[in-house]
Amino acid sequence: MPRTVLPRTVLRKRAALPAMVALGLALTACGQDAPGPAAQEDNEVKVKAPLVATYDGGLYVLDSQTLKVVETIPLPGFNRINAAGNGRHVLISTATGFRVMDAAGARLTDDEFAAPKPGHVVNHAGKTVLFSDGTGKVTFFDPRDLGTGLPETVTHTTEHAHHGVAIELSNGELVLTLGDEEKRPGIQVLGKDRKEITRNEDCPGVHGEATAQGEAVIIGCETGALVYRNGAITKVKAPDPYGRIGNQAGHEESPIVLGDYKTDPDAELERPERVSLIDSRTGGLKLVDLGTSYTFRSLGRGPHGEALVLGTDGAVHVIDPATAKVTKKIKVMGEWREPIEWQQARPALYVRDHTAYVTEPATRKLHAVDIETGKVKGTAQLPQAPNELTGA
């Protein structure tokens, strides 16, 4: 489908509306105009390196250096957050779209990208890509243009609405999932002209994405994963008949992507103890047994490409992707157990540079961990239990 450029007047602006709890059930385990970026930097920066955490009924904006709460922003309902990709803004999934927060300015704007059932947000190659699960519409924009209203966008709509994801590569190619409300069988790759280059439908339950060194794209399946690299799609087969990889974490300096790994299709809630490492160059897959379970908010990458997993044993497990060996265990908190309902708060891992930030909802704490020294360098007590965590 050809690209369509939408003028700013077509994009929706709205008064503040609360996010609805019903949004969380639909998602699967995603005032005045703000002044322009220059004016914001000069006059309205409240925190230079912000973190944003959700709690039941609102959001905290924190200083990542001091871990102090700079601002508390009430926003009823179950809220999901993603970095906008420009070092300043965060996108909040509401009942009707992706709401823009000026995290550095510690304020919630009225700007919103309209999107029924807002899903995945992907930042890559200077573009931010939004996927609407309710319509299958993919929205692209330059995150540097956020600041005065909404930026101009380019859109593409998939054949059927589904819980999907899309990523635009530096050469303009678009990798996106295939599916409808009944099934999600694989991916397709479209050229800059949005004509299909290739596709693969040997990926049941397709979910999640990550990029690796050399701009390889890895998409998870219930039977392994798909790797798109240099114009070709390779299927990575799981060693089990059902080997689901649905959440991935990549690093631009590593050809290997970290993923989760589940083997029980009938479990109400599987608590896996193995993670996957996918080599985008060879299509090889290795499993690492951690000896403890983890959740979909447990995966991250260190400053040198280390694979990081926050376990229910209360430790951050540091894995060397090249050897598939655990090289370090950093004890952060006590043991914990994943709740049945995915919307319920559980510890989350967010990595910025050499620091891993870890939430501990049971004690309402936020910890800052030095990845290289293995020491907890700071802990903050929060008013309410944190749930999701991200940074600008």
Rank of each mutant, 00 (worst) to 15 (best):
L6W: 15
L11Y: 02
M20F: 04
G24P: 10
A26W: 12
A29S: 15
G57N: 11
L59Q: 07
S64H: 07
V69P: 03
E71H: 04
I73C: 03
L75Y: 07
A83I: 09
R88F: 08
I92C: 12
A95G: 12
T96Q: 12
A103I: 08
D111W: 13
A115D: 09
V121C: 00
V122K: 03
G126P: 02
K127Q: 13
L130T: 06
F141C: 04
T148K: 10
T155C: 02
H156L: 03
T158N: 07
H163Q: 12
S170N: 08
L174D: 01
L176K: 01
T177G: 07
D180T: 01
G186P: 12
V189L: 06
E196Y: 02
E201A: 15
D202M: 06
D202P: 01
P204K: 05
P204G: 04
H207K: 12
A210Y: 08
C221D: 05
Y228T: 00
A232N: 13
V236N: 09
A238V: 14
S254T: 06
P255W: 07
T263D: 01
T263W: 00
P265V: 13
D266L: 15
R274I: 01
S280T: 15
G291A: 05
L299I: 09
E306Q: 15
L310E: 07
D313T: 03
T323W: 03
T327Q: 07
V351R: 05
D353R: 11
T355M: 06
V358A: 03
T359F: 01
T359N: 03
T359A: 05
K377L: 03
T379M: 05
L382V: 11
Q384M: 08
